[in-house]
Each structure stands twice: as structure tokens, then as C-alpha cells.
Amino acid sequence: MLPSSLTVTLAITILGLLTVAAFLWAWRKGQFDRINDQAMLAMDDDDFNVARPWETVAQRAERVAAHGPTQLPAVPGIWGGAR
């Protein structure tokens, strides 16, 4: 009972230390730099150009200032694959 509990304790400690080491390594390598920019990964460029009917005037102006003018809607009835 004691030896096996020692093994488990040891294994967990090593695992924990490895995790900490991996985290520190990642930190030093800059994996966490400019982290909020990574939020943009889900977005496609044209997501920002689509006018949304619920936007307030101010919200719309803000979006257009940041991402350019609103795109024309695509042809009605066209759906697949995009947007």
C-alpha cells in the first residue's frame, strides 16, 4: 500500500512539474503574446463589412471607421458556403 501510494504521489508530482515547465516554456516562447488579437481568428474579413440591422448609428459608424464601408448585399437567394 505504501509503495504504491508513493509511486502515485511521485508520478503526480512529476506530471505537475512537467506541466509547470511546459507553461513556462510556452510563456517564454511568446505563445501568449498579443493574445487579444487571437480573438480575431474566428472572424473573416467580410464579417466586419456586413451591415447589421440592430446596430445603432454610433455602432455602425465605429465599425465602418475601423473596417471600411458596408458591402452590398449579395444577390437574393444565394446561400451556400459563405458568410
Binding site: M1, S4, S5, V8, I12, L15, G16, L18, T19
Partner: peptide
């Protein structure tokens, strides 16, 4: 993997051995 190994050790392996 570390997360699941840790949890399994704590709640499955240790109870079994200790």
C-alpha cells in the same frame, strides 16, 4: 492529457491502490 491523468490518478488510481 495531463489534466485527465491527474484527475484519474486522484479519483480512480489512488482510491484503488491506497
Amino acid at each position: 492529457l495531463a489534466i485527465i491523468v491527474f484527475a484519474t490518478s486522484l479519483l480512480v488510481v489512488i482510491p484503488n491502490t491506497m
